[in-house]
Design a protein around this nucleic acid. Sequence first.
DNA 1: TTCAAATATACCTTTACAGGAATATTCCTC
DNA 2: GAGGAATATTCCTGTAAAGGTATATTTGAA
Lengths: 114, 114
Amino acid sequence: MSGKIPDMDVTMLSALAEPTRKKIVELLRDGPLSVGEIAERLGLRQPQASKHLKVLSDNGILEMTAEANRRIYKLRSEPFQAMNDWLKSFRGVMEDRFDKLDQYLRDMQDQDQR
Amino acid sequence: MSGKIPDMDVTMLSALAEPTRKKIVELLRDGPLSVGEIAERLGLRQPQASKHLKVLSDNGILEMTAEANRRIYKLRSEPFQAMNDWLKSFRGVMEDRFDKLDQYLRDMQDQDQR
DNA sequence: TTCAAATATACCTTTACAGGAATATTCCTC
DNA sequence: GAGGAATATTCCTGTAAAGGTATATTTGAA
């Protein structure tokens, strides 16, 4: 029932790795929405919307507020911060600064010669 | 056969949303490796390693270089840049809980990245 | 206290995919 | 060109998960 503590684990990625759920997240980027609004804007049947929202909530990506008989969903910040931190560890890759391939091949060649 | 053009689509996420593949990516963060080395370091059987590497390659996350009868895999930069760009669109969400100092420092850091 | 709206849940069916094991392919060395 | 090492591929099986449909639950209002 309660959302997981968000660190950059695979459950967060798998939650986002579903087309509809990614759309939901992108939709909520602009602000909180109710289940019905989400379903309508994305052309979903209500049960599927609820199911996807449950998955996202269970993985700590969304949080829910009850408003009368409506449930308002909004994004939590932590998972995105965690994802951002994780991505930072790939900064070297992103910047293409090292071409480690040459070095690697060199090492292999050295080993072969022993 | 050839890798897909990397934009932040769900296929990239689903490729990373598998525990072993995420480990492979994190392993290759430090430099290119051959199939055998990847399998050994992660305790995988060779066929499973090859299969995961194929998925990652098909989604444009890795690229391969043939060296004799070895295949060297390394990370491509584009998918991570795309993921980073996508994440930036959630900056409003991420910064929600930060005071202005943190926001300021973050902006400075982003400038450094150019 | 009954009705309708909004949402969640349960059950079923189908499909995608991961692992296991065997086999095919490629390339070097002798 | 035969053998072995490194890697890819194929086939099989089990399982997780997504959609469809029906139904349960909660809430406000008449």
